[in-house]
Structure formats: C-alpha cells, structure tokens
Amino acid sequence: MNRIREAAEPLPAPSAPPGPAVPRTATAAAVIEASGFPLITPTLVRFRLKGGRIIAKVSRSDVAAAFLAPPPERVVRRLLEAGEVTEAEVRSAAARPMADDLCVEADGGWLSSTADLPTLLPTVLRLRDEKAADTLMRRGGVKWRTLH
C-alpha cells in the first residue's frame, strides 16, 4: 500500500524544496488508476492539484459523481492550510474534475453489491453529460465558429 501511495504522490516542482515526506524519484507516476476508492482522499486531491492525471475505476454512481466533480473544497482547504499545495495549484484545478477518465466496473467478481452494467453505465454516462453541460454553461456556453 505504501508503494502505491508513494507512486501517487508527484515529484515536487523544480523550484520547490523537497517535502518532509517520502523521497521522490524520477519514476513517480504522472497518471494513476484510482480503483476501489469509495471517496476522494487527500492524497488523490494533492496528486490532482499537482498536475497528475487520474483514471478512476468506479462501480457506483455516487463514486462516479465524486470523480466527475472538482476536488472537495474542505480537502483542498486542508491541503492549502498544511502547505501541501499552493494557491496557484488550487486556482488552476478549481473547475477541473478529479478524474480525467472513468472506467465503469459492474458486477465484478469481488464486487457483490454493485449494479449490473446495463444499469450502471447509462447512469454514469448521464452524470458525465450533466457535468459537461454544467461546465459549458459556466464558461459561457458553446462558442460556434463558421469555417469559410
């Protein structure tokens, strides 16, 4: 578990002093798969705010909704107060969803309480479309260009 946590923590920016935590190597992950997370953790939020990309494997619609939303404000505030992220990092990721992509897993062998794929996938796709529409509206709608 510690190796996974270490890989999920990005390298510090070149101008930033090394943190007091685990030493970083050049093999730190730039993209991770977050599988089995029932909620968004501070480690995931820090990774995302530092510019990491997340592919979330989800088996419930509530978890999909959390990964399609921006990082939870309370977690971001805690990380900012602890000096683990900067104001600039927070601003740059404020409207970005936690995950760059989702993998929907339904009725897997070890998953006994999830919906079947024909039920879960359309729900997650609808959530994705709603979040995309909300983002477009916040940004002033779709801008159409006419090509000549």
Results as ranks from 00 to 15, higher is better:
105 E>Y: 08
98 M>F: 07
31 V>R: 15
31 V>D: 08
54 I>E: 01
39 L>V: 13
110 W>S: 12
132 A>L: 04
148 H>D: 11
113 S>E: 15
127 L>G: 06
13 A>P: 07
28 A>E: 09
8 A>T: 11
103 C>N: 04
45 V>H: 03
104 V>N: 08
30 A>W: 11
135 T>V: 01
66 A>H: 02
35 S>T: 13
140 G>A: 11
95 A>F: 03
146 T>P: 07
76 V>D: 00
133 A>S: 09
146 T>C: 09
130 E>I: 02
70 P>Q: 05
37 F>A: 14
3 R>E: 02
72 P>T: 04
44 L>R: 06
33 E>H: 13
122 P>S: 06
126 R>A: 11
6 E>Q: 13
32 I>Y: 11
112 S>W: 10
138 R>H: 10
112 S>D: 10
32 I>E: 10
60 R>N: 08
55 I>K: 01
2 N>E: 09
75 V>Y: 01
107 D>K: 15
96 R>K: 13
47 F>H: 13
30 A>E: 15
86 T>F: 02
10 P>I: 07
77 R>T: 05
36 G>I: 10
95 A>R: 08
89 E>W: 04
28 A>Q: 09
49 L>W: 05
116 D>E: 15
1 M>H: 12
27 T>K: 14
90 V>Q: 07
143 K>V: 10
48 R>L: 01
137 M>P: 01
40 I>T: 03
47 F>C: 04
94 A>P: 01
41 T>V: 12
127 L>E: 11
126 R>V: 00
64 A>T: 06
91 R>N: 08
110 W>F: 14
136 L>E: 05
131 K>H: 05
34 A>V: 15
55 I>S: 07
9 E>T: 15
44 L>V: 06
88 A>P: 05
79 L>H: 03
46 R>Y: 01
21 A>G: 15
100 D>C: 04
128 R>A: 14
79 L>D: 12
113 S>F: 14
4 I>M: 13
143 K>A: 12
120 L>D: 02
25 T>V: 09
96 R>P: 03
112 S>I: 08
29 A>S: 10
79 L>R: 01
66 A>I: 01
71 P>T: 00
75 V>P: 00
102 L>M: 06
79 L>C: 08
81 E>Y: 04
1 M>Q: 13
29 A>H: 08
20 P>W: 10
43 T>R: 15
35 S>Y: 08
61 S>Q: 12
138 R>V: 05
122 P>N: 04
61 S>I: 13
32 I>H: 10
37 F>E: 11
80 L>N: 06
60 R>D: 09
32 I>F: 09
147 L>R: 08
17 P>S: 08
13 A>R: 14
126 R>K: 09
142 V>C: 03
119 T>R: 01
143 K>Q: 13
53 R>G: 06
85 V>F: 02
126 R>L: 02
96 R>H: 09
139 R>Q: 14
113 S>L: 15
119 T>Y: 01
138 R>F: 05
73 E>D: 09
31 V>I: 15
102 L>R: 00
118 P>T: 09
37 F>N: 14
102 L>K: 02
129 D>I: 00
